[in-house]
Design a protein around this nucleic acid. Structure first.
Lengths: 213, 213
DNA sequence: CACCGGAACTTTGTATACACTGAGGTGGAT
DNA sequence: ATCCACCTCAGTGTATACAAAGTTCCGGTG
């Protein structure tokens, strides 16, 4: 693996998983020593992170991890809604019903996955991710997929801002199942509407239950 | 101006204005000699262009100017529609009516700007750009604005694929005026619908009248 | 005592030298 | 004659040295 890729991946994960908090300074020499590569690949990594919106140039000098807070949530979800509603719509027109019927079945049983055994909700988030992947594939639009991909990075980051209670996750799974069903049935309007409903519920939940700092 | 910025700006303009055609190889040494800077800022510029989607890594080695053709148009316009319809909707809810009434007046008279005196249609495109800026400002959503901004780069590139006849531009101006009016009237549904209509007309025109190569 | 100026230092921006890898060509063997 | 192996070379990937710019702290002055 190239050094610049390694630096990029490491920093990206550190930012997404809050090991590098918003506002943290990204000093080139310090990073190059910590990651064991020279400054050149570090700079390359920082440029990519900046383009992705995970880092931003400090006033005049240096880079810092970009801010993310509940204040950004509404804005983030407006973009998310625009993209995901359209994606669901297009998936309903173009997707293979069998694929989404299968996802609907899985998601309908997803409540069982949400137990106290797995506090990271890994299985649940993977299933939700599967739906995203299936929608992307069904839509078959490179530009839309890219826009969604760059958006999801920020969504992962935001997830840490709230405590996820099991009840909400079970509701979310049901909402996902409804979206999958609408797509499987080839109904664009319902798919879009179900997505709107789901995102509104998610947003209100996130804004309502703030994580204890 | 920093050398990396200069390299980035120059290359970006060269790509957007088709002085660097899709598929052209972006060799670091050749570019560094041509632009009179060392390879380091060139690499930085290429990284940014790659993140923006204007350049992409060649199989294994090197970078090339990314492809853009009429085959990508439908995909591009699907994303565009998702973003701009929502933006128009939100602008109708939040915008200052006075601003958009003014734009509506200007756009209603835009037909006069489209003469044979200015074959680049500079005045017209600037007016259309003013509407975009006003919508962005009215929406007040950083993430949505960023998504639109990165999309518009590709749209400028695509513009060269078709010959723009004056009749279509005058129609387009009227459609823009309709969008501005709907926003001024605070009617989200109409603003979104007018945007959908405008984009559909634009797309069909682009696909219908191919530029003679 | 506060404020302004400058010098030193820290940190980024750029150039260049070196290392490595993949591609293409050439020569030999079958 | 064709195919394979090896070698050469072009061009990228990385490291490091040097230049420039901005920040901070100290001292002087009003």
């Amino acid at each position: 693996m190239r050094a610049s890729e390694k630096a990029y991946t490491t920093l990206r994960n550190d930012i997404i998983h809050w090991r590098l908090a918003p506002g943290a300074v990204l000093a080139e020499v310090e990073l190059s020593e910590r990651l064991g590569v020279s400054r050149t690949p570090i700079r390359e990594a920082l440029a990519k992170l900046s383009a992705e919106g995970l880092a931003e140039p400090q006033s005049g000098r240096g880079m810092v991890v970009s801010e993310i807070s509940l204040d950004h949530l509404e804005e983030l979800f407006e973009l998310r809604s625009a993209l995901e509603c359209r994606a669901a719509e297009l998936a309903a027109r173009r997707g293979d019903p069998a694929v989404f019927h299968a996802l609907h079945r899985e998601l309908s049983n997803a409540g069982e996955l949400i137990t106290d055994d797995d506090p990271t909700r890994h299985d649940y988030y993977r299933l939700a991710g599967d739906l995203d992947v299936a929608v992307d594939a069904a839509v078959g639009n490179h530009y839309l997929s890219q826009a969604l991909k760059s958006l999801r990075v920020h969504l992962v980051r935001v997830r840490r801002l709230s405590k996820d209670n099991p009840a909400r996750l079970r509701d979310a799974a049901r909402e996902h199942a409804a979206i999958a069903l609408a797509i499987a049935n080839g109904n664009p309007a319902v798919a879009s509407a179900a997505t709107t409903v789901h995102l509104d519920n998610s947003l209100r939940h996130l804004l309502g239950s703030r994580a204890t700092p």
